[in-house]
Design a protein around this nucleic acid. Structure first.
Length: 792
RNA sequence: GCCCAGGUGGCGGAAUUGGUAGACGCGAUAGACUCAAAAUCUAUUGAUGGCAACAUCAUGAGAGUUCGAUUCUCUCCCUGGGCACCA
């Protein structure tokens, strides 16, 4: 028997899969479908990160198990390729982003193929492909037509030295990460998507999906639904009112002051009546200088100033209360004004104590009644804000709008889609804050599709969240030129049980919980309303993997020099070993530290499986012709304890995969392999069952052995083994015996043995008698089939 | 400051969800095989005391509930991630 050579085996097997296209699927199947999804990668110049295979192997294991369970499985991959790093690389080198992207995706594809994922490569997609982004633009136009894409003033990060707009990521802490100078906020007209229109449904429909509780909590907190009242406080001697939003209208009698955001419109309107104009003006100026970060970080130093000469009338009792402005009240949440009840609110109390404002104890009243009585309104507010959808960048989907002086924003006619990205000389944003596209006059100057007059193209591009908001729909029908995906194909793959359904299982990172996951749910619901997708929600089930950190638990980074290249691991140990190691490394949902030293354990396990093949071959039963598989158990030469262990392992591995407890599944298979190695021969049928449950984890080596055992069909489509209930049940078990709560010995009992018999057995036990020291049992606690505790 | 995770041997981690803490793997030590090495196999491996049987202690710290707590409750400390002071 040859030595195990992962290089030749893995290459050979991968070529066979590719040649036969065994993982290509179509919806023309009578089998039940399963749609497994992983977040498609951003093809960075650094190549595949060692963390990518964690998620991809996990879903590959599930996909492979589903195939063996007889399902028609869609598992696909693509590239989320628009984005900043490629563009910045282009700015530095002058190489076209499209060329860089091509190079990077080629690398990623090769790397992913070397890991043996069972992707249907015929469905590969790329968000930067005009054939793909045609439909991203098309969906944008649907938003526009429904009035959900609109233009509004917003702020961008602006570096006054470099004269360019910056992404949040490039302006962390208000510092430009290119030149280190302080950034400013600059007002700019931007395209927005009205995600807030869907806030309530995005919140409520979380009840329909199977997401981890922590993901649901995070989404709910992000959406931030709260019910409360809007109440008007009149400003005496003026025609103005302060409109406050409160979730505690029942505390209205406890209000001792009102606080406005410094940017609140009323401050300017009432400015003439303010007695301390100078101080107020200075306070407002100071607040403006602070970045959002500084303002929100100053928890302990809430600052404010009273608007002297201005009062507000509490509508509950017509008493006058002072009006303040403070930086802790934000202009863009609620109404930008709050009523302060220091008696009932910790933050109001802190502020009141600092500035010596009164704290009064007034009665609590019924929230609804008081709201009605004072002419207020019961309202629901959300934290969620509309989505700024414009980027002044090159490497994104051009927003398909033509700006006409006469007609305003006019959508590009569908027949003219996609609006392709033109080639430019410089990828750097212009120094007046416009995208580099603005400098290509030939491209910009067009006729208005409506009036045929002079018009200009929109030069803003979309954020990279656009392409990833609908990619799972494109996988169902990746080459369609007529529609973004055929409704029939979507219906097949997404399922439609009374509007429920969606991708069956979507695994991804926690970092995408509030942005990508929420954005794509929003797009999906919008498309559902247009009757363009068959389900209310895009994903039925979502799970999250933990990060793979560097050795010792620190983040992997170039600067720390602790980046692990998956190519090196595949080369040295093989894809099967890397897959097994990444699944064995720790609990799937938690962050774990990489350890190159520990990989050897997974490699040893794989080699052990290779050696086990000899035991199976040497079994004389191999030459006795075909056998009835159901007779395996009665096979006289098969060891009963080993068979019991095999069937227990089949059960455990199956259950562990479903719960993504891959680490304990592998541990169980290691135990089984070690036990198999101890016996002289292993029944070939039993060994095959072991190979089958290992197949999703280490598909190459098992396929090779499978072929050697004269199996003609790929193990990938063999039937997932069933375990025998009778073999799993034990007749006798050991249970723990405690005396006064301390473990002292164990006794053998029959499973489900009567309590009386167990008690008698325990009380006769020598060791138990010794520890009871002649005393008599006062109380005996028996936990069935587990433990008996004797108290004296 | 708030929210969400998490804290168990030298290291990564198990523990049937309140029932024998440390499965499995790495590392380490000793032995077998070998001229030798590698590979493989066997044994030991939480700490302290003891020749040993064994005993005591031990799951971030401290309390509590319980016959029994890694698991539940409270207080505190630390690590990681997120944040929009959300009225």
């Amino acid at each position: 028997m040859k030595n195990y050579n992962h290089k030749t085996i893995e290459l050979k097997i991968q070529r066979e899969w590719e040649k036969k296209k065994i993982y290509s699927v179509s919806e023309k199947s009578k089998k039940l479908k399963f749609y497994g999804l992983v977040e498609f990668p951003y093809p960075s110049g650094e190549g595949l990160h060692i963390g990518h295979p964690r998620s991809y192997t996990a879903m590959d294991i599930i996909a492979r198990k589903r195939r063996m369970e007889g399902m028609n499985v869609l598992y696909s991959i693509g590239w989320d390729a628009f984005g900043l790093p490629t563009e910045n690389y282009a700015i530095k080198t002058g190489i076209q982003p499209a060329i860089v992207t091509k190079k990077n995706t080629d690398t990623f594809r090769k790397q992913l193929k070397s890991l043996g994922f069972s992707f249907d490569w015929s469905r590969e997609i790329n968000t930067t492909d005009p054939k793909y982004y045609k439909w991203t633009q098309w969906i944008f136009l649907q938003f526009f037509k429904k009035g959900l894409a609109y233009k509004a003033k917003s702020y961008i990060n602006w570096c006054p030295k470099d004269k360019i707009g910056l992404a949040n990521e490039e302006a962390v802490g208000g510092i430009c990460d290119r030149c280190g100078s302080a950034t400013e906020k600059r007002e700019k007209e931007q395209w927005m998507l009205a995600i807030t229109k869907y806030a309530d449904r995005l919140d409520k429909d979380l009840d329909l999906v199977d997401y981890p509780e922590r993901v649901k909590i995070q989404q709910k907190n992000w959406i931030g639904k709260s019910e409360g009242s809007e109440i008007l406080f009149k400003i005496p001697l003026s025609s103005f009112f302060v409109k406050v939003f409160t979730t505690r209208p029942d505390t209205l009698f406890g209000v001792t002051y009102v606080v406005l955001a410094p940017e609140h419109q009323l401050v300017a309107k009432l400015f003439d009546q303010i007695e301390n104009k100078k101080e107020v003006q200075k306070f407002i100026e100071d607040t403006k200088k602070k970045t959002e970060l500084e303002r929100t970080a100053e928890n302990k130093n809430k600052t404010g100033i009273e608007l002297k000469g201005i009062k507000a009338l509490n509508p509950a009792n017509n008493e006058e209360v002072p009006v303040w402005i403070a930086d802790y009240v934000l202009a863009d949440y609620g109404t930008g004004a709050v009523m302060a009840v220091p008696q009932h609110d910790a933050r109001d109390r802190e502020f009141a104590e600092k500035y010596n404002l009164p704290i009064i104890d007034k009665p609590l009243v019924d929230a609804k009644e008081i709201t009605k009585k004072v002419g207020g309104k019961i309202v629901t507010k959300f934290k969620l804000r509309d989505w700024v959808f414009s980027r002044q960048r090159y490497w994104g989907e051009p927003i398909p709008i033509i700006n006409c002086e006469k007609c305003g924003s006019v959508p590009v006619p569908e027949k003219d889609l996609p609006v392709k990205l033109p080639e430019v000389k410089s990828y750097k944003p212009t120094n007046n804050g416009e995208s580099p596209l603005a400098s290509i006059l030939k491209w910009v100057n067009v006729k208005c599709p409506k009036c045929k007059g002079k018009a200009k193209r929109e030069t803003d591009t979309m954020p990279n969240w656009a392409g990833s908001s609908w990619y799972y729909l494109r996988y169902t029908d990746p080459k369609n030129n007529k529609v973004f995906a055929d409704p029939k194909k979507m219906k097949y793959w997404l399922g439609n049980k009374s509007g429920q359904g969606g991708v069956d299982w979507y695994n991804g990172g926690m970092e995408h919980t509030t942005l990508h996951l929420l954005y794509s749910r929003f797009w999906h619901k919008f498309l559902y309303d247009l009757k363009l997708v068959p389900t209310i929600e895009p994903y039925q089930k979502r799970t999250s993997h933990g990060m793979i950190l560097g050795e010792g638990g620190v983040k992997m980074s170039k600067s720390l020099g602790n980046v692990v290249n998956p190519d090196d691991i595949v080369k040295t140990y093989g894809a099967d070993t890397l897959r097994v190691y990444e699944m064995f490394i720790g609990p799937f949902e938690e962050s774990v530290a990489w350890s190159t030293e520990s990989i050897i354990g997974s490699r040893r396990f794989i080699e052990k499986v290779w050696r086990l093949r000899n035991k199976a071959e040497e079994s004389p039963k191999n030459f006795s012709g075909p056998r009835d598989k159901s007779q395996t158990i009665q096979n006289p030469s098969a060891s009963l304890p080993l068979q019991k262990l095999l069937h227990k392992t089949i059960k455990k591995v199956g259950e562990d995969i479903e719960n993504m407890r891959f680490n304990t599944a592998i541990s169980a298979m290691m135990i089984l392999a070690t036990e198999m190695e101890k016996v002289e021969t292993v029944d070939v049928e039993d060994f095959k069952k072991f190979l089958q449950i290992l197949a999703p984890f280490a598909p190459h080596i098992v396929e090779e052995i499978w072929q050697n055992l004269r199996e003609k069909k790929s193990i990938s489509f063999s039937e997932w083994p069933k375990y025998d209930e009778n073999l799993i049940k034990d007749k006798e078990i050991k249970i723990a015996v405690q005396v006064n709560g301390k473990f002292r010995t164990e006794i053998l009992i029959e499973v489900d043995e009567k309590e009386e018999i167990v008690k008698n057995k325990a009380l006769k036990n020598e060791i138990v008698l010794k520890y009871m020291m002649g005393g008599s049992p006062k109380k005996v606690i028996y936990v069935k089939n587990r433990l008996i505790n004797i108290l004296t």
